[in-house]
């Protein structure tokens, strides 16, 4: 059975890269004695897949991974057992049973939300609200997307689902929701780079952004009329069986 797990990543653990996070979880699953499925062969590995890899230096409140379990006593038990094994900074928030036939975590991702703050107190010439409104009022926001081999111009505007003033951890910041699907794969720094350019007079350095991923979303609606929901909204919370609960 496939179980989707939601976790957050904060504090010193933001310096741990994606591959190391995967290994960290594999070891945590072993320590917690979770009944996870292994691949066959000489170096058996756990059947585990992550939704959207998080870059080094980013924090997150909504990370997801799917695991294939051989038994799943209850959501609460799994969350508890894993949290016992977590290092300070990573916390498990949810574990839901996925309906049969659900695509893997990575394929389900359509969007991701981000809180964006600035290392050097970057301020736009007018106000934030105006700045964002003017930025988004552009007909198109052309961005040259480069990969190792190809270069392609895209209209970023089509990939931005939400952009506004917000607050996070008792501080004002920006909130940005972009297309995070494997075909879109928009990083907040791309949008910010264009915004700096639009406002003019600022040298852009992605190093100055302090980014926290707010959540990762799937789309329950259609492309034209999207209905975004966090990735764990399609799963089922499994309750403990009553005969296992102790007297209270």
């Amino acid at each position: 059975m496939k179980v989707r797990i939601k976790f957050s990543k904060h504090g010193v653990l933001k310096y741990i890269g994606h591959l190391d996070v995967m290994r960290y979880f594999q070891r945590a699953f072993r320590r917690a004695n979770i009944d996870i499925k292994y691949s066959a062969g000489f170096s058996p590995h756990q059947i585990m897949s992550f939704a959207a890899p998080l870059g080094v230096g980013l924090e997150s409140e909504g990370e997801y991974m799917d695991v294939e379990l051989l038994s799943f006593p209850s959501s609460h038990d799994l969350i508890w057992a894993l949290n016992e094994q977590m290092a300070e900074g990573i916390e498990i928030h949810n574990a839901v049973l996925l309906p049969d036939g659900t695509g893997n975590a990575m394929a389900s991702v359509t969007a991701a939300g981000y809180y964006i703050d600035f290392r050097d107190g970057f301020l736009p010439p007018k106000g934030w609200e105006e700045a964002i409104r003017d930025f988004m009022a552009q007909e198109e926001i052309l961005y040259l997307k480069k990969t190792e081999k190809t270069e392609r111009e895209i209209n970023l505007k089509e990939y931005i689902f939400d952009f506004r003033l917000s607050s996070h951890a008792e501080k004002d910041c920006l909130y940005l929701m972009v297309d995070a699907s494997s075909s879109g794969n928009i990083k907040p720094a791309m949008v910010m780079e264009k915004m700096y350019e639009f406002l003019g007079g600022y040298a852009f350095d992605s190093f100055n952004l302090l980014i926290t991923r707010e959540d990762t979303y799937l789309n329950r609606g259609t492309k034209e009329a999207p209905d975004f929901a966090p990735l764990d909204q399609i799963g089922i919370t499994v309750e403990e069986e009553s005969d296992q609960t102790n007297e209270s």
């Binding site: 010193v12 653990l13 310096y15 190391d20 320590r31 230096g57 290092a87 900074g89 190093f207």
Partner: peptide, 22 residues
């Protein structure tokens, strides 16, 4: 952490210096 975020983000493999291991 003893090193600032600015330094940790500019050097290779900041994980070497943060402790907090299991």
């Amino acid at each position: 952490l003893f090193l600032s975020d600015e330094i940790l983000m500019q050097i290779s493999k900041p994980e070497r210096y943060i402790g907090h291991e299991i």
